[in-house]
Design a protein around this nucleic acid. Structure first.
Lengths: 355, 355
DNA sequence: CAGCCGATTGGGAACGCTAACATTATCCCC
DNA sequence: GGGGATAATGTTAGCGTTCCCAATCGGCTG
């Protein structure tokens, strides 16, 4: 039998012992405030048609009982879960992580919960599973931070009606997309090097399944073409410093490799390390430009010239897109493109050396 | 009016047009499979007392209709939300991020959703808010990856009954804790340097509000004491490479600073950079040891000797602790302590240089 | 003064599921 | 062949909200 202590007027009272039997429900609040459960609901949902006095009484009761609405019940009754889902790949690298962080903050600000599913394999199947998993939780909107081709196919298996935004997705896809203009960024990097007088630019690319990697290679290639420069076949890494190091070991032995555009900063670090090891001085003998601008990039040896992406802004934009679709009810295919910028540091510019 | 197309026996049929009016419910499945909704529920929950034939029929119906259970309804009815909450601070640094990642993977494996709240301020208030936010979502368990003192106080405001695990929390706290033995790690680092013949070890510490920073300083101090070495007052950074760089600039001008233990790898990178800039060679003139072993640390110039923490394991352990408490129903104060290990690379060991 | 309107409030049903109990079939043993 | 276990299924109540519609109460209009 549940303890049923009631006040002089029949209201329920808060449990005197700390170990309350269960969380107070809207009915408890109603009874305590001597109104109907519906009025309490109205107060909770900021419905204007509640008298000031009544509202005050209800709020007092809520406070007194320490009432918190039950989200599951609300979700069931209203069909709205106030949750945004994120399918994220590689949630340990700087870019995705920062995007996710920006997403979380923005979602919180908009009053949404965030449920994250980490995908570890790059295949269509696991993305699909992740999406299923999230939709079964009735997320209202879905962001996919898994920028490889197979992910996009998987998204088609979505129940119609759930807004989706592909982060760093294919701009050609038929869904909302937030993306940094990778091609432009790569162009920026390449042209920077060409402009510094290098005849051509070598390239360490990311894994070809990644859209970002492809776009960066494409931008690099385009810039070389425009300038009429030679295009050496790019090396390819897996985003890690390790793979950058391996690529660097190869390039260190290529005398022509005087300017290198590396598809991200972590690989660039590996490249720097390999060049250093082989005694090739940066930037005097070899110029290096990265991509991402991690907080550490300014402290590489030498400080890395790179392309800055505003990841947090990407995350925020993704939330905004979802919220817009949710409030207007319209299914948009809007795309937000964010421009990257060149951050020029010593790795690409010969400066008077320190010793 | 909802389309009400029924089969010859009165079962509901799946909508012929792709745009189905609403998601199928358990009742739809039941009617389609010609069993009671309860039987469907039993199938869904792997209840053994369902006949093989019936089960097959139900499964077929589920498949046919594309039925997915409504989590909100399930949570409401059962009181279990299958969601674990995480309060995370600084979800952009390698350590917390990797822990979170490990947590997510483990949670998924155990069939739990993960809801993350990012806290940006270090005060008690925001942690408390985050916890409120998550409990209102009726998470079943809560992990707090916010290893500073103020967070711990905030945790007391929790409703009794929700299992909590503090990740990298105070081992003295009266709750479950998963932690890496930071003191031991710092000792390892310091003793490694002392053992290499350095008379004493300088220290660049983390922000003093962070428990990890304190523990590492403590371990460092203890090791020096045991060895009877001088203790120079530590410099203090904020975990960033930038702050490490600043500390490094100071230490580069201290001739006695021949061995430095830096409280994390990112700051160590800054230190390396500053030393390099001032022409102090590592490790020939100054030895440096970091803490964390990020994937990049092996590619620093020179490769960084550091203390490896198995972050993913920490995340897994946190999930395990929560799941245990959830299944046994017992409120534990178990603590899991994971031992860090020394990874010896060139930054602390004089080796024949390359040029 | 009847009638109506806007502002409040209340009463039930519905959301989709699980829990607890009731019911029916099945089979075995004495 | 009756009685009682056991397996398989069905029935009925909630879980805590929101939604829809009805009810009440002033005050104002004509």
């Amino acid at each position: 039998m549940t303890a049923n202590n009631r006040g002089p007027n029949g209201q329920r009272l808060p449990e005197p012992n700390g170990e309350s039997e269960r969380r107070p429900s809207i009915a408890d609040v109603a009874s305590f405030a001597r109104v109907s459960h519906q009025t309490v609901s109205r107060v909770l949902n900021d419905n204007p048609s509640v008298g000031d006095l009544t509202r005050a009484r209800v709020l007092a009761a809520i406070d007194q009982l320490g009432y918190r609405p039950n989200i599951a019940a609300r979700a069931l009754a209203s069909g709205r879960s106030k949750t945004l889902g994120v399918v994220a790949m590689d949630t340990t690298r700087y870019g995705p992580v920062s995007t996710l962080y920006g997403f979380q903050l923005a979602a919180q600000q908009h009053g949404y919960f965030v449920s994250v599913v980490a995908v570890h394999a790059i295949d269509r199947q696991s993305v699909r599973e992740a999406v299923r998993w999230l939709t079964s939780q009735s997320v209202e909107g879905l962001a996919v931070i898994a920028p490889f081709t197979s992910a996009h196919d998987a998204l088609s298996s979505l129940p119609t009606g759930t807004p989706v935004v592909a982060v760093e997705g294919d701009p050609e896809a038929n869904m909302s997309v937030v993306t940094v203009d990778q091609v432009a960024g790569a162009r920026l990097a390449t042209e920077h090097l060409l402009g510094a007088g290098y005849g051509t630019v070598f390239h360490v690319a990311g894994p070809p399944e990644w859209l970002e990697a492809r776009a960066r290679s494409e931008g690099w290639r385009a810039a070389l073409h425009s300038a009429g420069a030679d295009v050496t076949p790019p090396l390819s890494g897996d985003w890690t410093a390790r793979s950058g190091y391996q690529a660097g070991q190869v390039l260190a032995q290529v005398p022509d490799a005087r300017a290198i555009f590396v598809a991200n900063d972590q690989m660039a670090m590996g490249v720097l390390r390999a060049l250093h090891e082989r005694g090739r001085r940066v930037p005097e003998e070899v110029a290096v430009v990265g991509f991402d601008d991690t907080p550490e990039s300014a402290y590489f040896i030498p400080p890395l010239t790179t392309i800055r992406q505003d990841f947090k802004r990407v995350g925020r934009a993704a939330v905004q897109l979802l919220v817009d679709q949710l409030t207007t009810g319209a299914k948009s295919q809007e795309r937000v493109v964010i421009n990257p910028e060149l951050v020029c540091r010593e790795s690409s510019v010969a400066v008077p050396s320190h010793d």
